[in-house]
Design a protein around this nucleic acid. Structure first.
Lengths: 198, 198
DNA sequence: ATGATTAGTTAACCTAGGTGAATGGATTCA
DNA sequence: TGAATCCATTCACCTAGGTTAACTAATCAT
């Protein structure tokens, strides 16, 4: 089975919620393909079919939607131990509603549709794990809607700083702005206001 | 088994995606309790444990979050054939992040946690149905984030009118405003602008 | 029926964030 | 190593939507 080191994170991640036997884990791993992405490589482009899901093993990706005016909006950043890909597209074959692009050199474990289905069908614990995972993603997305609505841009930025400093410090500011739903100039202004004690 | 009429919608709803045998369907139904809600009754209050999920059989509910300033934001309206309830709270026992309140006299089919688990565990097709359903909710929520971000209030309102006229015409305007993320006065202004040809 | 809340509208003014343009620093790439 | 981008910042001005408050039309409760 060759290089196990690159599956260490995955195992730790899976075992945060469930305990998998070595056998089960090796089976899961056999359905995944390690892939390297260079900075700016796309994992999937909006409009294309998203044929894969990906587990982030190192590096960082950005998922973003481009609207009809060409404006980008960042849905999320995917770091170590995140899963990414447009599930709607993955499952139904519809065009992906967002792009996912590497912000730096990034290593992912890639699952294609048929392998994924086989994994879910043949490893009951994995299926259970995935069900809970999907539910949690749903909950996080619902929470994001609430947060988007109930906070000013400055509050959102300060909260991001508190809850995820690694995002703020690792990622170019114009992407942070696009995550907060504002323009880079506005983020600059907000940062200036914060610097001089609001 | 008494009154089957109130389960007709549920059956049609389930069979949109999967075909259930009479046996399976009766089993599912046996895990549900019909409940009547009067106008303004709460199905769950934000902060309380959400002990149930509900299928809407008639009437209409509103799911809304109240933020720290007391401002309400409507997450969605639940009509015929919608499911509602805060799943996070339902599954983990955490406080519900939003309230769900009847906007008119409403009939729901209510599932409590243990019954629901039993249904999922003992009816594989139901489990499969539920998995797909959860995924679709997730996708819809992700789409809502995209829409919230990429449209002005006026565009959101016009789109809502196009895509869901029954919402706009059945529901008091201040709730529509809170769904769009604006104040009732602003919705009035927008409606006036639209009336005089933008 | 009648007074009392609740819903919708309008208007004058305010503010957070957008726009466009200019500047300087940092990367990238030939 | 130098031209070309790209990134972050600043500023002057603009605009969508918020705020306050007044007025009217509906609903509701007794």
């Amino acid at each position: 089975m060759g290089n196990y080191a690159i599956f260490v994170n995955l195992r730790k991640h899976l075992e945060e919620t469930d305990h998998f036997t070595d056998e089960e884990f090796e089976k899961i791993v056999s359905f995944l393909t390690p892939v390297k992405l260079n900075k700016k490589d796309f994992f999937v482009r909006q409009g294309d079919h998203c044929g894969y899901l990906a587990f982030v093993n190192s590096g960082c990706l950005r998922a973003f939607h481009t609207d009809s005016n060409g404006e980008e909006f960042t849905l999320y950043f995917a770091f170590l131990n995140w899963w990414t890909g447009d599930k709607t597209s993955f499952y139904s074959g519809s065009p992906s509603r967002f792009s996912v692009q590497a912000l730096e050199e990034t290593e992912i474990l890639r699952a294609d549709r048929t392998k994924w289905e086989t994994a879910l069908d043949t490893i009951p614990l994995f299926e259970k794990w995935y069900r809970v995972k999907t539910r949690k993603s749903y909950e996080a997305t619902q929470q994001r809607i609430i947060d988007m609505q109930s906070q000013s841009a400055q509050e959102k930025y300060l909260n991001l700083l508190r809850k995820a400093p690694e995002i703020v410090h690792r990622i170019p500011q114009h992407y942070i702005a696009s995550y907060l739903g504002i323009k880079p100039q506005s983020l600059s202004r907000i940062r200036k206001n914060i610097a001089k004690g609001k």
